[in-house]
Design a protein around this nucleic acid. Structure first.
Length: 548
RNA sequence: GCGCCCGUAGCUCAAUGGAUAGAGCGUCGGACUUCGAAUCCGCAGGUUGGAGGUUCGAGUCCUCCCGGGCGCGCCA
């Protein structure tokens, strides 16, 4: 298939170069093999001769000529062209065999081993347990889930983790907020301080606890119990939402557990030994300026409590000790300032700089009736994921979140996502899948059973199917690039292009006809498309309906 | 002031440093006796914010400028 093809081609090129230019030391990373955009340039192309023209003091095109004339192969043909590209065109037979392979494997071959079992951890959402999940959490959820699946597919041992911030000051504030709400429910005059939570969900919890107390449960009137019960209640709500969103985590990691295992004191000790700690104004500081950051930060406040940074350091030390070769954090836009100081701090513990990778997901703007929805976190007026699921459904929500590059702001048009019309891309893809399923149902009704052995080369590989086949061959490359660039949007964008080409193919060429052999061969193409659409929809967590 | 992100067609956005910058929506004009019209075909629409630089080759990398979003606490 195409991946092994790329490796084989690289080997062939290296061999040919070594033979032609024995003095040259050349490695695989010195050149690239890519998919040309223009069909006329073949199936693959390489820039190798242009890259080496200077070193060899030769014209790139003459290098390309010498090399491409040197290699012969039944599976593909080398040719050279003006600026100096070497283009590779697959033989019909190679394409045909690769396509049969896809059908036989039912899609299980859309992967190859990049990770060799390396352990990768992806941590995402990790929302404070002080309120329901919001739309930025949802964006992170969609992206993290797809990335985790991609890592797994490409041979990594992947773990999804949710970090529960159950130890900080925000939890105390949550407790106080619920207490205040309970007092208010009792008819007392209360005022919610600036930093408290006062959303409707706080009152719901308060009502529940109050009811418990009224019916004789003493626990629900003690501050610490209220805090813990409230926290658990919110955490459970978050878990329910996540489940509704079709997402599972391998691990829920409690911040509190870090402190009971004294991970933070261990970290402080090491930092002290390295002379990276000092006292100022009654607080304990870390000398991150010595580690490449632009300023120093407080680890222990003058009142003795710990900052978020210290917890994060301890947490990531713990992660590192768990043996992950890479840790990826997906953070919201409000955490961008935390990246450089955490990464700087971790270098003090002999953790490689590239071990922790932090992706900052950009903001989500909800658009309703053509206008941005205003958000006020403090008043508890913000768009929850639950509400979004209720309004547009999981499929449309997930697809929309995956439609844009992670570094771009995302305008989420609720009215569009709600519509079950053609402008809504998720239905365009699902429709393609449903239509493919329908074709096979129809074929069966006409008494045609699809059998792979009856698929004929000349009926499949011809000018009619050029575009479809070409797009099919791109699929695994797209998956790989989505993984490497950490951009699941590559997959959704590809799916739209594939659907585009399929619908056009469907219109131009009738699939089920009197000609039984031709029908079966065309069904072969449809089978591959069906496999790919199913695979994509599974990957991105969107349902693949057989009827619509 | 410092940092991150963005600037590409009327709108929303694509484009692993490669060859002629692509989609969708919107506008306009076409295609249903026949496998699903939730579809397809066609027209129009661009000096990739600006100026330099690196490179055989720049929307992409570097520097500066302009415009927009966000973040810069002994909050989390």
């Amino acid at each position: 298939m195409i991946f092994t093809a790329i490796d084989e081609i690289k080997e062939e090129l290296l061999k040919a170069f070594n033979k032609t230019y024995p003095d040259l030391v050349l490695s695989i990373s010195d050149f690239k093999i890519e998919r040309p955009k223009n069909l006329d340039f073949g199936d693959l192309s390489t820039n190798i001769s242009m890259r080496l023209a200077k070193k060899l003091k030769q014209n790139p095109i003459s290098i390309a000529e010498r090399i491409s004339n040197l290699i012969t192969n039944e599976k593909w043909v080398y040719s050279f062209v003006k600026p100096g590209f070497i283009n590779i065109t697959f033989s019909d037979n190679f394409i045909f065999e690769s396509m049969l392979e896809i059908i036989r494997s039912e899609g299980s071959m859309f992967s190859f081993d990049l990770g060799h079992g390396d352990k990768v951890q992806i941590e995402f959402i990790s929302a404070n347990p002080t309120g329901p999940l919001n739309v930025v959490n949802a964006r992170a959820a969609s992206i993290g889930d797809v990335l985790a699946k991609l890592f797994t597919r490409f041979g990594f041992q992947t773990e999804k983790e949710y970090y529960i911030n159950d130890a900080g000051n925000q939890v105390e504030i949550l407790g106080h907020s619920i207490e205040l709400a309970m007092k208010k429910l009792n008819g007392e005059e209360v005022e919610f301080p600036e930093n408290s939570y006062a959303g409707e969900y706080i009152f719901e919890i308060a009502r529940e606890l109050k009811a418990g107390f009224d019916s004789g449960n003493e626990d629900t009137n003690q501050p610490e119990k209220i805090r813990d019960l409230g926290l658990n209640s919110i955490l459970q709500t978050q878990k329910n939402t996540i489940e509704k969103f079709g997402l599972t985590f391998d691990n829920w990691f409690s911040e509190k557990s870090l402190y009971s295992s004294a991970k933070h004191t261990e970290a402080l000790k090491i930092l002290k030994q390295k002379n990276l700690i000092y006292e100022k104004d009654g607080a304990t500081w870390i000398k991150t300026t010595d580690l490449g950051d632009s300023q120093d930060w407080v680890l222990i406040k003058s009142n003795g409590s710990y900052t978020y940074l210290l917890g994060d350091i301890a947490y990531h030390l713990n992660k590192f000790e768990r043996g992950f070769t890479k840790a990826i954090n997906i953070w919201g836009p409000d955490h961008q300032a935390g990246v450089s100081r955490l990464q700087a701090a971790l270098t003090a513990f002999e953790i490689p700089r590239d071990w922790l990778e932090v992706m900052i997901i950009q903001q989500v703007n909800l658009i309703r009736n053509g206008e941005r929805v205003k958000i006020s976190k403090r008043k508890g007026i913000f768009e929850t994921l639950d509400k979004l699921i209720e309004e547009v459904g999981v499929d449309a929500a997930r697809f929309t979140f995956l439609l844009r590059t992670t570094s771009s702001h995302l305008d989420f048009d609720i009215d569009l996502a709600k519509q079950q019309v053609s402008e809504n891309p998720v239905y365009y893809i699902q429709y393609a899948h449903a239509r493919l399923c329908s074709i096979f149902r129809k074929a069966l009704e006409s008494g045609i059973e699809f059998k792979i052995d009856n698929v004929k080369l000349e009926d499949v590989i011809n000018s009619e199917t050029r575009d479809v086949i070409r797009k099919i061959f791109e699929y695994t490359l797209i998956l790989k690039s989505a993984l490497i660039s950490r951009e699941p949007s590559r997959i959704t964008n590809y799916s739209m292009e594939l659907a585009d080409i399929f619908h056009a193919f469907y219109h131009n060429f009738r699939i089920i006809t009197e000609d039984k052999e031709k029908t079966i061969s065309r069904l072969g193409i449809c089978r591959i498309l069906q496999i790919i659409f199913k695979d994509i929809l599974d990957l991105i967590g969107v349902s693949a309906p057989e009827h619509m």
